[in-house]
């Protein structure tokens, strides 16, 4: 396997007494999307700032390499390989979108003609040609983000850091941004993405790491993470206490909630398992008033892993499909 795009071992950062990153390991193979998922204040932005050379890691960190270059000894080489689109838009609001792009072309030392060509191409690709001559401060949130990414792409970076690229965008702009990110990877670029949206990580990332309190609580593909949460369940709700009692005696493996008159039976929610449960209830001559099937999704993983207390037996806010 070739060199990973990002290889960080034991990444640490603390400010005085406060530990922001408590020794995290990040390995991102080239050409993939890696998502750092976590609630506000988990340390996502700090991780991006360190990996993009904006701030320095604690000396106690292990070896940190980005694009094959050491972060602390050769930051300029790292900078030549990366592009960064931060959480707060990194465009110059006082000048036009086109001037912003040409500024990037100059700073990337592109010849003048090449700079103009790349600028026109990227403005077209990100649907900004119409607004090219307007000051960037007049752009909408979605347009600013698109300009931001377009500016990042001028240098043709191999690795792109996107810090919460869709925070604050409307659903349409968010989907446009997702499409843009997918296209980046087809061009062979490596994307390091932070997000607080589970759906975003699920949609885009090859590999997801859940960051909470400065530690990586779990990482893997979306599927692997979902498997971490013990299977789904079927929930039966009764209104008649007698029926509830009968069912509880029949389905002895169920977890009882005598107050709410509900039973919770571990199940993967397949048709076969559902039929078995219903057959057993029929045989006992009783009937549930409501049946819901719950399959684990990334939300459950997220809530289970990021809750500050111990991992709860049941997710805090289960999404349930009523059948």
């Amino acid at each position: 396997m070739s060199d990973p795009a990002i290889a960080a071992n034991g990444l640490r950062k603390s400010y005085g007494e406060t530990t922001v990153l408590d020794g995290i390991d990040i390995h991102v193979p080239a050409g993939t999307i890696y998502s750092l998922l976590g609630p506000n204040g988990a340390g996502k932005t700090t991780a991006v700032k360190i990996l993009s050379t904006l701030i320095s890691p604690d000396p106690a960190s292990g070896p940190l390499r980005v694009g094959g270059h050491d972060l602390t000894t050769d930051p300029q080489a790292v900078r030549a390989a990366i592009g960064v689109t931060g959480q707060f838009s990194a465009v110059d609001g006082l000048i036009t979108g086109e001037e912003n792009m040409l500024l990037m072309a100059d700073l990337n030392h592109l010849p003048r003609g090449e700079g103009r060509r790349v600028t026109a191409e990227l403005l077209e690709r990100f649907d900004l040609t119409q607004a090219a001559k307007k000051p960037a401060s007049t752009y909408s949130g979605g347009m600013k983000r698109r300009l931001d990414i377009a500016m990042t792409l001028v240098g043709n970076p191999k690795i792109i850091f996107l810090d919460e690229p869709t925070t604050g965008l409307d659903p349409r702009s968010r989907h446009t941004m997702w499409q843009i990110i997918r296209e980046l990877v087809t061009d062979g670029v490596t994307v390091f993405l932070t997000t607080q949206y589970l759906e975003e990580a699920d949609q885009l990332a090859d590999r997801i790491a859940v960051l909470t309190n400065g530690k990586i609580a779990a990482q893997g593909s979306a599927e692997e993470l979902k498997r971490l949460i013990p299977g789904g369940h079927v929930q039966l709700r009764f209104t008649d206490p007698a029926a509830y009692q009968t069912a509880a005696l029949t389905l002895r493996e169920a977890t009882r909630d005598d107050q709410a008159l509900t039973l919770r039976i571990p199940s993967d929610g397949t048709q076969r398992e559902l039929r078995t449960i219903l057959d057993r209830l029929d045989a006992a001559g009783t009937e549930a008033d409501e049946l819901t099937v719950h399959t684990p999704d990334l939300d459950d993983v997220f809530f289970a892993l990021t809750s500050t207390t111990s991992i709860p037996a049941q997710p805090a806010q289960p999404k349930e499909a009523v059948r």
Binding site: R79, V84, G86, F88, A90, V91, G93, L107, N108
Partner: peptide
Amino acid sequence: NEGIIARFRTMNI
């Protein structure tokens, strides 16, 4: 205070 300064800091300039 502009985000663009952070961008400059991450560029090979």
